[in-house]
């Protein structure tokens, strides 16, 4: 069983990688400052003794190697510690926020690929046509416009001016968002999803289109495409079967990476839309130096990206017979 052995070996190689990343993130964070000072900044009445008590309570007064070792032993048993803000178990916090992030990301990744595949193929086939220039220009715009800009513009236009979609949160509270006057929990969820998903899709679809267009242009020049044409194979088969399968491999890497990175959320988009997901929480926690939360989310992202890389490599071998798993 070459495959099982390969997967086992790759999983074992991940262990030192995860440990290394955890150590670096830990050190970077501890050099950033003291969370207790930040937490108590708004309270002029607090005394130094009380601050010291808090530091002792969270174990922040211990030497850094000892703190790291304590964090690591907890992490290895699946315990991510408690957050400094709210004193909630980080595991629970992550679990409660994951779904909203995954929902938003999956929707945008799926839409992005559904748009990018036909658009990329079409732009490549009609190279240098008006359609190609239109698709390419929109792509460049999508790549160039930063998310915080498009997000704010969308909120202004579609939420503030037109009032079509809500501008914040994932659920209507206290009342549901009316869609065509109907207040329904599912429609409410969809309405909340529209703007952030659109912003995320815009940002990623552009990369996907350009990558697929370049890949298709490269593949369509190949002899085997001309050979298929010379054999009287239908245009449709050539494009969607023979060329696409060859052109889509670079996109597969991107898909793997975006699914792996998806769990970390899109910090910028989630922040602008106050989306109750991991990305927004990460930004909040990093600003407060809430070590356990930042470490927990960082480790989660790390593990997901490493696993996604492994799955991408396996997918490569599945698509391309020339790639052997060794």
């Amino acid at each position: 069983m070459g495959l099982a052995k390969y997967v086992a070996r790759r999983l074992i190689y991940m262990i030192p990688l995860i440990l290394g990343i955890s150590l670096v993130s830990f050190l970077v964070m501890y050099s950033a400052g003291d969370p207790i000072t930040i937490a108590t900044m708004g309270n002029p009445m607090i005394t130094e003794t009380e601050k010291q008590f808090l530091r002792h309570y969270y174990g922040l007064d211990l030497p850094i190697p000892v703190q790291y070792f304590r964090w690591l032993t907890n992490f290895l048993t699946g315990n991510f510690g408690n957050s400094i803000y709210g004193n909630k178990p980080v595991n629970q916090l992550i679990a409660s926020l994951s779904w909203e992030t995954v929902k938003l990301q999956l929707v945008s990744i799926i839409i992005s690929f559904l748009i990018a595949i036909p658009a990329g193929i079409y732009a490549a086939v009609k190279q240098r046509s008006a359609t190609d220039y239109t698709v390419s220009s929109i792509s460049i715009m999508g790549i160039s416009l930063p998310v915080f800009f498009t997000a704010v513009v969308f909120i202004l236009v579609f939420s503030y001016d037109l009032g079509w979609f809500p501008s914040a949160g994932a659920h209507g509270a206290p009342t549901l968002w009316p869609v065509f006057g109907i207040r329904n929990p599912i429609l409410d969820e969809i309405a909340h999803l529209v703007l952030p998903a659109l912003v995320l899709t815009l940002a990623s679809v552009a990369y996907n289109v350009r990558l697929l267009r370049a890949g298709m242009l490269e593949v369509l020049r190949q002899d085997y495409i001309m050979a298929a044409k010379a054999s009287g194979i239908q245009e449709r088969t050539i494009l969607y079967k023979y060329a696409l399968k060859n052109a889509i491999t670079p996109l597969l890497t991107l898909l793997g990476l975006s699914i792996g990175g998806a769990i970390g959320g899109a910090p910028m988009t989630e922040t602008v839309f106050s989306w109750p997901g991991l990305g927004y929480q990460f930004v909040l926690a990093a600003g407060r130096l809430d070590f356990p939360v930042v470490m927990g989310i960082t480790m989660l992202i790390t593990i997901f990206i490493l696993l996604a890389n492994l799955i991408t490599d396996l997918a490569y071998a599945w698509v391309d017979p020339r790639v052997t798993i060794e």
Binding site: Q222, D223, Y224, M226, A227, A228, K229, A230, S231, G232, I233, T237, Y242, K245, N246, V319, D320, P321, R322
Partner: peptide, 30 residues
């Protein structure tokens, strides 16, 4: 006409066969 009445053999057999499909599937499709 293509393939049926007039056919073409290419210079480089390596680049004129699609690398991602078995030769059986490529030829059967024709």
């Amino acid at each position: 006409y293509r393939g049926k009445k007039i056919s073409l053999i290419f210079q480089d057999p390596t680049s004129s066969l699609n690398p991602l499909f078995t030769i059986g599937s490529q030829l059967t499709e024709i």
